[in-house]
Design a protein around this nucleic acid. Structure first.
Lengths: 89, 89
DNA sequence: TAACTATATGAACATATGCTCATATAATTG
DNA sequence: CAATTATATGAGCATATGTTCATATAGTTA
């Protein structure tokens, strides 16, 4: 159950959900995420580090930007289901 | 997104997941949950209070026992999906 | 190479969380 | 009614969490 809880814990923070949702729609650099979500560069980077640890996102370098994209389809699917459910009621 | 995060936060604690999973299989009194999950009566009751607040469980009295059962099918469904996913990998 | 840009990271802090302990509430039984 | 059983709840505590601030790292460009 701890593993399941960990997956949900990842999705239990608004910032992380917003980051993952953004990444579910487009690849993003750290700065772009910070700008769109109106978060500090540092806060975004910390959260991305967390998501990276859990292998929920992957990175590649492009020039001196780091481009993030999601890596775990199942988590994205769970997230979208939850969003849909929250919208329809 | 806060609403979605709240739903996931509920499922982000092992104790709550275990309680909900148990309730997904059978109605239970507080004492029974505590016994099965080897948790304190107080800890179980606190968590049930939390789950009740979010309308994820409902209660009825039976003698001097309180019988809990789950109330939100969608959350149960998300939980089971996550468990299945965790098992198969 | 020096200056610049983008990102990462460590420390510190304020808040949130889940538990325990003690006690309150409520129904049942003798 | 008193004692018992089952559950709820408030206070307090230890730990976890997410953010900010300052700074480090790494690639790019003049």
């Amino acid at each position: 159950m701890d593993e399941v809880a960990l997956m949900f814990k990842t999705l239990s923070d608004p910032s992380r959900i917003r980051i993952l949702y953004l990444l579910s729609q487009e690849e993003c650099s750290v700065g772009h995420i910070a700008e769109v979500l109106k978060m500090t560069q540092s806060a975004v980077s910390h959260q991305l580090g967390y998501l990276r640890t859990l292998r929920l996102v992957k990175v590649r370098r492009e020039g001196n930007s780091m481009i993030y994209s999601y890596e775990d389809d199942h988590v994205i699917s769970l997230m979208k289901q939850a969003i849909q459910h929250a919208e329809h009621r």
